[in-house]
Design a protein around this nucleic acid. Structure first.
Lengths: 332, 332
DNA sequence: TTGTATGCGTTATCAA
DNA sequence: TTGATAACGCATACAA
């Protein structure tokens, strides 16, 4: 009853060979129903559960996939992961999550799980840290990036068109009459960030507005950093008439800071965020934002990964999903 | 260079036995420095990485622990998990996270990783679903609950004193002159919830205030549910002069709904939340709340777990950490 | 339909 | 100091 038996003990108790027990466990048709019953009875009595380590070692697969996150604190990814989980369940895989806290050593550590065949594949949710590690691994193991990717990576990815999303957001602001638009970005070197910055610059340029470099400010995706960045700008006596932030949290920081300083939103300052996180609906006025199809991003990523694991053809290795400009009350 | 070698191939290349390679890998003193160098050179050249499956099978351990979460969407746990991770790293364990979405089947699924010896131990962050499963397992495997627990569980846990925390929060409100205090709870059957409700009731009773059952309202920890619950109450024509919510998200929902309806916070209605999540500082007015030592909760839980795994004595199996009443602007 | 025996990649015991 | 070899728990080719 207590203590975990092995296949050997079950075999002895049931009076059959371990091969027969193994076949029963895998429901092989090559075992008579009678024998199966006998074995199953013993299994039930003894509360036996097969050691997956042994099985994995033998089969060289785990039916487990790992999602690597930089931080759990980003609400954006919780819905993405829900999408991944749905597909993983459907296709018979377990989903494990780990976080690196943006530490390279930690990333390397979890990457090892792939080398060690503790998981069958990995999805990067967001960007990764050490490019060389990954570019080496991606040739040999099933890997997918979801939402962040490198310029020359060969592994499949799924993302929105970050350039176009930013371009569209700025066009909306321009269309509403805002002319002196600041961008609140993150100095992280991610391609997605670079693309959003380029979208911002190109939209202004295409509209014939000259770029003021001091209007490009930086945070770390967080509320506090957004608040600090806009404060610094205002303290310099510079007042843009709109801010495009690449995360809703930063946009919310801008919003509260401006309200605290008595700046009217959206009359004096328009704000548009990114991600359509919950916080964008909690704020007053509610934040306009750029929405991403979060669940679908996760679903596509997981399907790409499992297809790879199972050796299926992946015709479409680079998937771009549509974004959405969501207008609420922080833009006039 | 490409393809993952095995210990056998390394042995052949280095011209030694697999035993020597294994010893080198584990840095055994019983290998001459010269031989070690030779083996290490081959390992470096071939980019070999030991198969952990084989090692785990042999050692019957994984040096990996699993944290079971109901949802990733709860910001509260992200800091708790940071604490866990710190300790896990320190003590040489990998930390994996999974989520059940409150589905029993999914919980069972991940619990199996323990039976299958894919992980050495499990921490429940928050409450679990199927008690009988767990009460059976906790006798045989290293397990710890962090923040949620059952009345008669034998496995170690770490938590704040939910009863006292709620009692204290209500006393603060009473001290500020609020008399008609509603409680916004969750109908989930968790012991932590029951204790918070009892704390609320006892504090009122001890103060000589009679209980109005209609002032006990329910949500699901989320912002929207808090907004809906207070709306329903107000629509009935009932206006409490304070609300004690057992999550900051619900408290924030109450706050915004009341502001939208033109109710003055904190003059007409005081609000106190629970958890000291980021959102409590993002709102205006900022939310008063009950703070928990999140990182420490995670650290203690992880230490309890690893002590168990390593067969160390655990003198203190039930750890209660101090809470903190944080007063901001949503209470007068 | 069942059993025997081998191997998956390690570590550890025992000899040499 | 090193090597041969037996486990660890399982799945499967081959024999019976």
């Amino acid at each position: 009853m207590i203590g975990i038996a092995t296949i050997k003990e079950i075999a002895k108790l049931a009076g059959v060979s371990i091969a027969t027990v193994s076949r029963t466990l895998n429901n092989s048709p090559a075992v008579s129903e009678k024998t199966k019953q006998k074995v199953r009875k013993v299994i039930a009595q003894t509360d036996y559960s097969p050691n997956v380590l042994g099985r994995n070692l033998r089969l060289n697969q785990t039916r487990t996939v790992l999602v690597i996150l930089q931080t759990l604190a980003n609400a954006f990814f919780s819905k993405v992961i829900r999408g991944m989980e749905r597909i993983a369940n459907e296709r018979g895989y377990k989903l494990l999550i780990c976080m690196t806290n943006a530490k390279e050593e930690s990333e390397r550590n979890y990457l090892d799980m792939l080398l060690n065949r503790q998981v069958d594949g990995i999805i990067f949710a967001g960007s990764f840290i050490n490019e060389t590690n990954i570019l080496d691994l991606e040739k040999r193991f099933p890997m997918v990036t979801c939402t962040g990717y490198l310029q020359h990576q060969t592994m499949p990815y799924v993302s929105i068109d970050d350039y176009q999303a930013a371009y569209d957001a700025i066009c909306v602001l321009l269309g509403k009459g805002y002319r002196n638009i600041a961008m609140l970005s993150v100095a992280n070197g991610f391609l997605s960030t670079a693309l959003r910055e380029k979208g911002y610059l190109d939209a202004l340029k295409d509209y014939g507005i000259s770029i003021d470099p001091s209007m490009m400010i930086y945070g770390d995706y967080g509320f506090t950093s957004g608040a600090a960045a806009i404060s610094a700008l205002l303290d310099q006596g510079k007042l843009p008439d709109a801010v495009f932030a690449i995360s809703d949290n930063m946009a919310a920081g801008v919003l509260q800071t401006c309200l605290d300083r008595g700046i009217q939103i959206p009359q004096e300052l328009g704000i548009i965020g990114f991600d359509n996180n919950n916080i964008s609906r909690y704020m007053r006025p509610q934040l306009s934002t750029v929405g991403q199809p979060r669940a679908e991003l996760g679903e596509v990523a997981m399907n790409l990964l499992i297809d790879q694991i199972e050796g299926k053809d992946i015709p479409q290795r680079k998937v771009i999903l549509p974004h959405e400009i969501i207008l609420r009350d922080s833009t006039r």
